[in-house]
Structures are given as structure tokens and as C-alpha cells.
Nucleic acid binder design. Structure first.
Length: 432
DNA sequence: TCTGGGGTCCTAGGACCC
DNA sequence: TCTGGGGTCCTAGGACCC
């Protein structure tokens, strides 16, 4: 038995905790660079704003309908997320943190009164940190996801489902007719693991609802699609195929990529940007205790500006030996960028990806006699000191020389809210 | 003028080996 | 003139997730 708990309109809800005036208003949170809407309040959804809608296309709704648009504040959301997951863990013996706003709880078979317990946890989260959540409970993760949809729909679309299912829906407790009804009401594209493409192909086979999909022969799902879809079919039938992942496996690649605040044509700001990306990526790399064997740098022009000349290049730089040293990675990133750079293009985005990750174990010295790369204890001690300083005093307190964050490649974030929960200066003040 | 970022897994096809 | 079969590894591309 699994439960899935997730925060409703998570980023918007985080913002509303500290600005109650945003309640009952249409609110969106924008992606980096204030590019497009990545979270919407119910009121914003009612205005017809789609997930991913470019901001410039919905900006007029500010005057027309009082839309409030905020820059993403991931520091705030990450901290609220930690608190939410901490409270959610009380629901059962095992927890998988699936994303910033969702977690699965497993091992519920031995837990008495699961539904009531889920309601109590929801209440505790709401009282404790002010976030609204919904919980779906079922025999498999895929069905728990589905139940979670039901809990949400029952709450916000009166009449769609019985009110008892609002906020917390335990599908396993529902009578069989209701279970069938739920599967029948769910479009196949809303099933976890079925995206737009596969939904379209399934529709050609006359498979349009979750119920239809659950009745597809698993072998056919495997032959005509993939083992992934076969698992989904089985999960919809109540046969668990996707286990709980208690500990996140170490990442196999680490990326840092950004769209620029304005188009870049010159080499120096590009080098500065990728140096910065390499530095950030190196921090993430060390945080999970890994080294990387190679690094990929890319840059491209805007795919949306069809009149501009197109540019899209990448270079993979092999390191002499695996490293997690900021200086080594920054140097490699710069080299890659100099290699792919061509003048005359308006570049919109660039990034660095660390590949061939392996665990940071013992020091391994180079076989090459004249390898001048600085290695060994001194360098890793320096990295450790850098990470600690930045952790204690804030990101970017110390940084590699070429990676200073000064240029106009920096992203636009014109409507960012304060770091209410992680910076003393931003602590909200309560007035009597 | 203005369109995000960071991941995973699976599959097909080619290279290579015996 | 005749030209196998089975396996592994790697990569690129597609699909999905939030």
C-alpha cells in the first residue's frame, strides 16, 4: 500500500504563506529568466493560463484580471519542501521523496486507520507551515498517483467525485464500482508514465481512459510500446511493479544550464557564464561525493527566433583523470567554449554538463609523468574549504576568478520575493 | 522585445568480438 | 562463388517526469 502526498500548486502556495494578500487572486510563478508560468493558482488556471505559457503572452492579464506574476524563488521552495517532507514522513514507516512537492509513503499495510492518519498529517502540515496538500492512497504507486488526482478533483471540481474523497482519497477503501468509475473517468494521458505521444498512439488503438489501458494485454503493451508501459498496465491492475526508492541513487550526470537575460554574441561573457556554470556544477558534484571523467559545454541561439541565423554546438572535453576540482572543471569548460564559439550569432542559452561520474574514492595519481594538473590533498582541502564557506556565508561568497557573476548574461528575475525562511535579513515581521 | 531547468530510462542501430 | 550467429558495449534519439 502506498500513499502519495503532494502540495497543491506548490510554488504559489509557498508564496502565499508569506503574502496572504495573494490568496484568492490569480497568481503564477515564472520559470528562470521570468520566461514562462511553471505554477498557477486555481484562479490563474480558471483564467485559462496553461502550464508553461510564456509570460509575454499572459502579461496583459495583469491589467485585465489582476494576475500576479512572481519570479521563481527556489531557495524558499526548497526550504518549505524540506519542512513538508519532514512532516509527511510521519504518515508511515518508509518515505520516498519523489520531487520538490511530492513524496510517496510506503509500508502502510501494517498501519491502522491509514485514511484517518493521512487526514491528520495533512492537517498538521497545514497548521504547521501553511501549505495545502492532497493525499492519494492505493495498492500501487501508479494508482496512488491516480487517487491523488481524485482527491484534488473532488476538492476543486464539486460534483466530479463524492466529497468524502476530497483532499484524501483511499482508492483501496472504495467499493469496486467506484474504483472502476475512477479509472473510467481518468483520461489515459493523465496516467503517470503516459505522456502526450503515447496517449496519441494509444488513442489510435481506441485506448482512451485509464480503464481501457488497465485492460490492455501486458504483452501487447510491451511489444508495441515498451516495458515501461507494460509496468503501467500491471500497476493499474493493482500489481506493484515500481518499488519505493528510499535513498536517491547518486546522479549519473549533473548539469548547470541557463538562458541568458539578453542575447550574447561575444566570447568573453560566454566564457564567464560557462565558468560560472562549471563552478556551480562542481559544487553539486562534490556534494554527492563524485568525480567526473568528462564535461560537455553547449551554447545555442533561440529556437524561437526563426529569422536569426541558427547556432547550436557542443563540445565534450575529456579530463586527463576524473576530477571534482573547480579549477580543473572551469578550465575544461572554458576550453570547450572557445572551441565551439563562432562570432555573429545571438546566443540565448549555454550550459555545462558533467558526465562519466564515479564515486570520489581514494586519490588516484596520473600515469602521465608530466601531468601538471594540480591534484592531491591540498586541492581537495581547498575545495572543501570553499564549499564550507559558501554554505555558511551564502552562495558565491568565494568563487573561482573567472567565474565572477557580473555580466549581463545573468538571468532576469524582476519579481522575486524575499528568502523569508533562509536569510535573517528577510525574516518577515509580524505586526500587532 | 519577451518562450525554464534538471533529470531518468528505454530502444534501435552500429561497432566490435569470438 | 560462397558470406553465421550470438553477444556486449556505446551512442543518439525519443519519451517521460516534475
Amino acid at each position: 500500500m502506498y500513499a502519495l502526498l503532494d502540495g497543491n500548486n506548490f510554488f504559489v502556495s509557498c508564496e502565499r504563506v508569506f503574502r496572504p494578500s495573494l490568496k484568492c487572486r490569480p497568481v503564477v510563478v515564472l520559470s528562470n529568466n521570468d520566461g514562462c508560468a511553471i505554477a498557477r493558482s486555481e484562479e490563474a488556471k480558471a483564467l485559462g493560463i496553461k502550464m508553461g505559457a510564456p509570460y509575454f503572452q499572459i502579461r496583459h492579464l495583469h491589467d485585465q484580471a489582476g494576475l500576479v506574476a512572481l519570479s521563481a524563488n527556489f531557495t524558499l521552495y526548497g526550504d518549505m519542501s524540506d519542512r513538508m517532507h519532514g512532516l509527511a514522513a510521519g504518515m508511515g514507516p518508509a518515505q520516498e521523496i519523489y520531487s520538490i512537492d511530492e513524496c510517496f509513503i510506503g509500508g502502510l499495510d501494517g498501519v491502522r486507520d491509514v485514511t484517518r492518519r493521512a487526514r491528520a498529517i495533512r492537517e498538521r502540515i497545514h497548521r504547521g507551515i501553511g501549505l495545502p496538500t492532497c493525499v492519494g492512497i492505493a495498492t500501487t504507486k501508479t494508482l496512488a498517483k491516480l487517487a491523488n488526482h481524485v482527491a484534488k478533483d473532488a476538492e476543486r471540481k464539486p460534483g466530479s467525485y463524492p466529497v468524502e474523497l476530497a483532499q484524501v482519497c483511499n482508492l483501496a477503501e472504495c467499493p469496486p464500482e467506484m474504483q472502476l468509475h475512477v479509472l473510467h473517468q481518468t483520461p489515459v494521458g493523465d496516467v503517470w508514465g503516459v505522456g502526450r505521444r503515447i496517449a496519441r498512439r494509444l488513442a489510435e488503438l481506441n485506448i482512451c481512459t485509464a480503464l481501457d489501458l488497465s485492460r490492455m494485454p501486458p504483452a501487447q503493451a510491451r511489444d508495441q510500446f515498451s516495458v515501461v508501459l507494460e509496468r503501467t498496465v500491471l500497476e493499474l491492475r493493482g500489481i506493484p511493479c515500481i518499488p519505493l526508492e528510499l535513498e536517491p541513487p547518486p546522479k549519473q550526470q549533473i548539469a548547470c544550464t541557463r538562458s541568458f537575460g539578453m542575447p550574447i554574441t561575444d566570447l568573453p561573457p560566454l566564457v564567464e557564464a560557462v565558468s560560472h556554470f562549471a563552478q556551480r556544477a562542481a559544487e553539486k558534484l562534490r556534494a554527492q561525493g563524485s568525480r567526473c571523467g568528462s564535461l560537455l559545454v553547449f551554447a545555442h541561439s533561440s529556437p524561437f527566433r526563426t529569422n536569426d541565423p541558427r547556432f547550436s554546438e557542443s563540445a565534450t572535453v575529456q579530463l586527463l583523470q576524473p576530477s571534482s576540482d573547480t579549477a580543473v572543471l572551469v578550465t575544461a569548460a572554458e576550453r570547450g567554449m572557445r572551441k565551439i564559439y563562432r562570432p555573429g550569432y545571438r546566443l540565448a542559452k549555454a550550459g555545462v554538463m558533467l558526465l562519466d561520474l564515479s564515486p570520489q574514492t581514494r586519490e588516484q595519481s596520473s600515469l602521465l609523468p608530466d601531468d601538471t594538473t594540480t591534484t592531491g590533498r591540498d586541492q581537495s582541502a581547498l575545495m572543501e574549504a570553499m564549499d564550507q564557506i559558501n554554505q555558511r556565508w551564502g552562495k558565491g561568497t568565494v568563487s573561482a576568478g573567472s567565474a565572477m557573476k557580473s555580466g549581463d548574461w545573468r538571468m532576469k528575475q524582476e519579481r522575486r520575493t524575499p528568502d523569508y525562511t533562509t536569510r535573517l535579513e528577510d525574516l518577515p515581521t509580524a505586526r500587532a
